[in-house]
Nucleic acid binder design. Structure first.
Length: 857
RNA sequence: GGCCCCGUGGCGGAAUUGGUAGACGCACGCGACUUAAAAUCGCGAGCCUAUGGCGUGGGGGUUCGAGUCCCCCCGGGGCCACCA
């Protein structure tokens, strides 16, 4: 019997698809379009299991939608700028460009072996000038439109990477990649005005109904809308005022101090004449923002000696502090403190002996005796100690006090967002140059469009600290495009999230002279199904949503939301292993000895099996996809990726699970190619259904129709594991039909063909090979998804459960839509029911037609 | 600290969305084939003190009926976090 030659077969069909251009697409307006996109990879050198899962999921959707008659765009490219290339340059003396291109070539070859239905003619790499020249143009358009601007600001500085980080790249006070403690520095940086779209980005989340709730919530929180008031506190003896933001204007009569951030302009001004204050400010800037630092850090303040006048009572003043817990970046960088109803303010007040006046009375408290101890009261209650606000609820007091402030012109309603503008400048080499020129006489001027792209120099030195572009002897020296005098280029490059914020549009017209043709982009976009990791829930997805709006404003396309549907896949996880010395071991270094004990392969030393965790190089719990595909083939790897867990959940990679998938691949092969072993003859191509068939054949025929229906439903709901299970169930059913049954060879033909069409999105090579061997012609990928007969997915006779008081006591067979009386009568005759009733007359019998009978005793 | 998710056999997970809990697979056991093993095929299997009882983390509730809905608790996870 011929064995399934995976390698040969998979290679054969991959070549056939490529030669035939099967997956190349154009804007075919006769079909509905469907754009499937997986988050494109960083070319790190080799694909890992996370990639395999991601692209398998995408290919499942792409091939299914294609079979359903959609014109499917399914492209792939490379997110090719980034720091690792520079690190490689430093460590291995290889140019980032060379390193990146070699990695791309290696990874492309690995992807091609997976049999993914990509239109490779659209492949892009973001490090190519043909790609990034367009984003330089976009940036100039953004500057023109007021969406990009330069400002001096306190930035997060990663001392290890020698670069600025966006807020989103600071995790727990540390650089997201280096892990180094982030410092504050004052630098001139380019920003994109994402805050201008804060409200729009927030309210549009509601319309993203095919996004996971989790991601929508994360974006919601990240934008962080707060409703409150802006309140003016005049400064006694000065002609300026302090502007504070508060979400609790109702507690204004409980104010006992004001506090400003260390970096507040007023702090800086006062510090200029006050060395003690200057020292305090410097100390605040040094303070870490890690979780530990924040929890242990005391609320500290420096009394400026200034007094702020209460906005609702000119005779009332409070002290003004510079405080280490006030953030310049949020609100106005200044607060008023109401210790009774805010924990931080309370801690601060207790430390500096400031007044604590409660102004919100808890519902069951007594006004005469209620006191604040060490915990602030932040709940709902009735306002008191607050003059004209007394007796109001918190909400009523808020709006009432804002009305008064507005009348007196000392405050107004204000909405503040946590979201900050996106700082895009990076002091790195391997990124897209910011196309700007600094001229001493003309200021900052854009590089003329005709001079784009501004390309990176190739002869750079990576050994010196800092930015190689800045260190380069000649690159930055240019003539000013306005006055012709000497000028220098901007030596910063863009944050790499810049490239990934529009690549989905470039795929619509990947080889075009312009960024993309608006007609093509408008045809393909939005991406119908985007698939990738949850780690991009905020950064990449939020930037892309903003970028799309910005591009719309600049006339590039007509679209707000780039991704209509989003699927966030779980991680691929694996057991961890350690040897007796505590060193991590690769899965290939351990094995199961007699008795189930884990030992090392080499010398049989005992192995400690640890937690099941995300695959990571440091813990060595990685499995190389290439080795798996080499052994079992791409189809087996793909099938396992789909079958064990639903996509959003983590998937544990196990050798046994892969073996299971491998067995199924071979089982299908044997079943359909070897009548002797598979159990029965397969009818000839085009064989018609016999008029008379055995009941077992008729039953299996129904199973085929039901499976066609349920597999499609499962795929539509991304329950790929269920879809695989349903196919397996059908295969079991087909195998059980006796070969002697009348109509069995017809059934096999029908059943096998159907199975092959159902598994095409999962295991495309096997499906195509079997399709051809069953007599099918051409590409199975071009064959439509099978249909089903609605009459055959509905059973004529149903098995209905019969319960007594909610406990199942047996089942009855009933024709579909049987009379309630008939169902009741049949149910009451069941021995199990008679026994459970023990001679008692049922009080009531609930009959839900075609569903259930419940006898209430 | 705030907000949000999730707890189903030895394991991954199903369950028509309130209607026979445990599909499908993994692991396991038994049998067939084999000199033997592998592969393959067949059978078995939630648990228990088994013609019955108990079972979806625990407790309560709604309902004829709850894995599914509501309340409380326990456990695990995620995101954000000196955000005024």
């Amino acid at each position: 019997m011929e064995r399934y030659n995976v390698k040969e077969t998979e290679a054969k069909w991959q070549k056939a698809w490529a030669d035939a251009g099967t997956f190349e697409v154009t804007e075919d307006r006769s079909k509905p379009k469907y754009y499937v996109l997986e988050m494109f990879p960083y070319p790190s050198g080799r694909i890992h299991m996370g990639h395999v899962r991601n692209y398998t999921l995408g290919d499942m959707v792409a091939r299914y939608k294609r079979a359903k008659g959609f014109n499917v765009l399914h492209p792939m490219g490379w997110d090719a700028f980034g720091l690792p290339a520079e690190n490689a340059a430093f460590e291995r003396r290889v140019h980032p460009d060379t390193w990146t291109r070699e990695n791309i070539a290696a990874m492309r070859a690995q992807l091609k072996v997976m049999g993914l239905s990509y239109d490779w003619t659209r492949e892009i790499a973001t490090c190519a000038p043909e790609y990034y020249k367009h984003e330089q143009k976009m940036f100039l358009d953004f500057v023109e439109a007021g969406l990009a601007y330069r400002k001096e600001s306190w930035v997060n500085w990663d001392p290890e990477e020698n670069t600025v980080l966006a807020n989103e790249q600071v995790i727990d006070g540390r650089g997201w990649r280096s892990g180094a403690l982030v410092e504050k520095r004052l630098l001139s940086q380019w920003f994109l005005k994402i805050t201008e779209y804060a409200e729009d980005l927030l309210s549009a989340i509601e319309g993203l109904d095919r996004w996971p709730d989790r991601v929508r919530l994360m974006q919601h929180n990240w934008i962080g809308r707060s409703e409150g008031a802006k309140v003016r506190f005049e400064l006694e003896g000065r002609d300026d005022a302090l502007e504070v933001f508060t979400t609790r204007p109702d507690t204004l009569f409980g104010a006992s101090f004001c506090a400003i951030a260390a970096n507040h302009p007023l702090s800086s001004a006062l510090a200029a004449d006050n060395p003690d204050l200057a020292a305090f400010v410097a100390e605040c800037n040094r303070m870490g923002t890690s979780e530990v630092a924040l929890e242990t850090a005391e609320k500290r303040g420096f009394d400026t000696g200034l007094r702020a006048v209460h906005p609702l009572d000119p005779t009332w003043t409070v002290p003004v502090y510079v405080a280490n817990f006030v953030l310049m970046e949020y609100g106005s960088g200044a607060i008023f403190g109401c210790p009774a109803h805010d924990q931080r303010d309370l801690d601060f007040a207790r430390k500096y002996g400031l007044e604590v006046t409660p102004v919100v009375l808890p519902p069951d408290a007594d006004a005469a005796s209620f006191e604040i101890g060490t915990e602030a009261f932040v709940g709902e209650g009735t306002i008191y100690n607050s003059r004209f606000l007394d007796g109001l609820s918190v909400d009523d007091a808020k709006s009432r006090v804002i009305d008064s402030l507005e009348e007196m012109a000392s405050g107004s309603r204000e909405i503040t967002y946590r979201l900050r503008d996106w700082g895009v400048s990076r002091q790195r080499y391997w990124g897209c140059p910011v196309p700007m020129i600094h001229c001493e006489s003309c200021g900052i001027v854009p590089v003329p469009e005709a001079d784009l792209p501004v390309t990176l120099p190739t002869d750079v030195d990576f050994d010196a600290p800092g930015n190689p572009l800045d260190n380069h002897p000649t690159w930055k020296h240019v003539t000013c495009p306005v006055c012709g005098g000497h000028a220098v280029r901007e030596t910063d490059t863009f944050d790499t999230f810049f490239e990934s914020s529009w690549y989905f549009a470039r795929f619509c017209d990947a080889q075009g002279e312009t960024a993309f043709d608006a007609d093509k982009a408008n045809y393909w976009l939005p991406v119908d199904q985007y698939i990738g990791g949850i780690e991009h829930a905020v950064l990449h997805l939020l930037y892309s949503r903003f970028f799309t709006r910005a591009l719309k404003r600049c006339g590039y396309l007509d679209l707000d939301e780039p991704f209509a549907g989003l699927l966030t896949q779980g991680m691929v996880i694996h057991e961890t292993y350690k040897d007796p010395d505590g060193s991590w071991l690769f899965p290939t270094e351990v094995t199961r000895a007699e008795g189930g004990k884990w030992v090392t392969v080499d010398d049989q030393r005992p192995v400690v099996v640890g937690r099941i965790e995300k695959m990571s190089k440091s813990k060595r719990n990685v499995v190389d996809p290439e080795a798996i595909i080499d052994t079992y083939g791409a189809d087996t790897a793909r099938l396992f990726m789909l079958s064990d867990s639903p996509p959003e959940r983590d998937l544990e990679w196990t050798e046994a699970g892969v073996e299971g998938a491998w067995r199924f691949v071979n089982r299908l092969w044997r079943m359909m190619t070897d009548a002797g072993n598979g159990g029965g003859e397969i009818g000839p191509l085009g064989m018609a259904r016999p008029d008379a068939v055995d009941p077992s054949v008729a039953e299996a025929e129904r199973a085929i129709h039901k499976t066609v229906k349920s597999v499609a439903e499962s795929i539509e709901r991304f329950r790929f594991n269920a879809a695989v299970a349903q196919v397996r169930e059908l295969v079991n059913t087909l195998a059980d039909v006796p070969s002697t049954a009348t109509g069995s060879s017809w059934l096999r033909r029908f059943g096998y063909e159907t199975v092959v069409r159902l598994i095409e999105p999962m295991t495309p090579h096997l499906a195509q090979e079997l399709w051809t061997r069953l007599g099918g012609t051409g590409m199975l990928a071009d064959v439509a998804w099978p249909g089903f007969d609605p009459a055959l997915v509905i059973d004529d006779v149903l098995t209905i459960a019969v319960q007594v008081n909610g406990k199942t006591r047996g089942t009855i067979e009933l024709p579909r839509d049987a009379e309630k009386d008939a169902a009741e009568a049949a149910a009451l005759e069941l021995p199990g029911v008679v026994r459970a009733l023990a001679g008692k007359t049922p009080k009531r019998v609930v009959v839900v037609p075609n569903r259930i009978v419940n006898v209430v005793g």
